[in-house]
């Protein structure tokens, strides 16, 4: 009888030990959130994405919309890559739109950040013939729109 009890006991012990090992593995997995991407890696990733030779308009717009939702101002090299992608896809309007979006991302620090960004991307702007929103005359509201609810 004792022997049976002992055997049962050892089985239980074994099962418990297995479970503990499993659950500790689960805890280990749960605590790790994957590798944290460094800023450098992030910039590289987006630059490479925009620089892909077979990028299409959907992907370009998707990345721009995504970047707009992030809590940061994109690095000049990301902006340059995006502008080049616009050139590749022959979409001038999108390039200007993206510059406007970047200015919007500068938020209340536009006076400090935008001059730096502009100085960095100026060679690209000149070589591609892209105008900044201010040069396009879009620095100030130009046209008023009729309210859709009172049409």
């Amino acid at each position: 009888m004792f022997r049976i009890a002992q055997r049962v006991g050892s089985t239980v012990q074994c099962v418990v030990r297995n479970n503990i090992q499993k659950s500790s593995a689960a805890v280990f997995v749960r605590h790790s959130h994957g590798k944290q991407e460094s800023d450098e890696d992030f910039d590289n990733r987006y630059e490479a994405y925009f620089n892909r030779p077979d990028i299409d308009g959907w992907e370009l717009r998707k990345a721009m919309n995504d970047l707009q939702g992030m809590d940061m101002v994109p690095e000049p090299r990301i902006i340059i890559a995006a502008l080049k992608a616009c050139r590749k896809l022959n979409d001038f309007a999108l390039a200007v739109r993206y510059l406007e979006a970047v200015q919007e991302k500068c938020g209340s620090r536009k006076n400090e950040i935008w001059p730096y960004l502009e100085q960095e991307i100026r060679p690209t702007l000149d070589s591609l013939g892209i105008l900044t929103p201010e040069e396009m005359g879009y620095g100030k509201p130009e046209l008023a729109i009729q309210d859709v609810y009172s049409m």
């Binding site: 739109r97 105008l131 929103p133 879009y138």
Partner: peptide, 18 residues
């Protein structure tokens, strides 16, 4: 410049400033 502005307005309705 006019052509560029025309192109922008063909793609988008309002500028950010607007």
């Amino acid at each position: 410049l006019e052509e560029k502005r025309e192109l922008y307005r063909a793609s988008f309705c309002q500028t950010f400033a607007e």
